[in-house]
Write a protein that binds this DNA or RNA. Structure first.
Lengths: 162, 162
DNA sequence: ATACGTGCAAAGTATTTGCAAACGG
DNA sequence: CCGTTTGCAAATACTTTGCACGTAT
């Protein structure tokens, strides 16, 4: 159930699966290493997060798990997320609606930020290396060692404009 | 009480005062225009915001006003902020601690973003034009008309590092 | 066996809403 | 005068905490 099966139709698929699972593996390992023990709720939260392709709120995780007949308390979801965030394994994302969202922090991988449509609420991820280097440069220039950063752009999306 | 007195010691001082008041004036005007009427609470919130040089939370505004013997309810502070944000006159800022902060959106003026020390909690503003253009370019490339954007960098500040 | 993780329910904050009274135009 | 804004208090939403119990080591 944990190790991916290597019977997929193409090599590329296999590699992608492995890379995606890699985060869940390492998150679980680091969490165990940090606190000695680990239980079902944490694993479920990690697996759920790993399956998402953009940020999700704690409530969404909780609801999603319960929808899959996995019995976890909200508190455990928050506790798991807190632990993961503290180890830098998940990134907190605040989109401006007062709800904190979370997403896996995959090293080097698909680090991205968010475009939010002020009209329909759609959330779209994007990547930009010029943006990243500008942030890094500024932070260093002010004597900061960057631990995390977060860019949110609000505006009218393509579909919501006349 | 509303119009600044032009008896300052130097011309430069007068100009600075006028520029700073300009936002409060226009905010008040646009608010009246949008809703026909305007009362004391809104004016107080606008004046208070204008006097800050970085973002403040709704509670801070409320407490700050009461400390100056101005009697306003928390609800009115939130309502005023909401109206101002909807007109694009204030910028919502989420620093990652679950509290929404607000600051005046002065057109062209001192548009900035925030560095937050993960250790001591210090908040420091910064400006960077390369960052701004990167954001604009990305948003346009995705078909978005930017209404607002927000960059938060978390890290250890100069003082909090070994 | 023992200590840590978990679920439930209760508590804590931040923000919103209902409503009568005050107030601006 | 009339309708909007306001302040208070109650309600809501999200997140955290206390505690008894289960579970991994």
């Amino acid at each position: 159930m944990r190790a991916p099966r290597h019977r997929s139709t193409s090599l590329r698929t296999v590699i992608i699966i492995d890379m995606e699972r890699a985060w869940a593996e390492s998150a679980h390992a680091r969490l165990r290493e940090a606190s000695g023990r680990t239980g079902g709720a944490r694993r479920e939260v990690i697996e759920f997060l790993d399956a998402q392709h953009c940020c999700v709120s704690a409530q969404e995780i909780h609801d999603g798990l319960r929808a899959s007949d996995v019995r976890v308390g909200v508190a455990s979801v928050y506790r798991a997320l807190d632990g993961l965030a503290q180890l830098g394994l998940v990134q907190r994302v605040e989109l401006g609606d007062g709800v904190t969202r979370f997403e896996p922090a995959r090293p080097g991988g698909d680090h991205h930020h968010h475009l939010v449509c002020s009209d329909c609420g759609k959330v779209e991820p994007f990547e930009d290396s010029a943006l990243e280097s500008a942030i890094e440069r500024v932070a260093v220039g002010h004597g900061y060692a960057v631990a995390a950063h977060d860019v949110v752009v609000h505006g009218a999306c393509d579909d919501c404009r006349p």
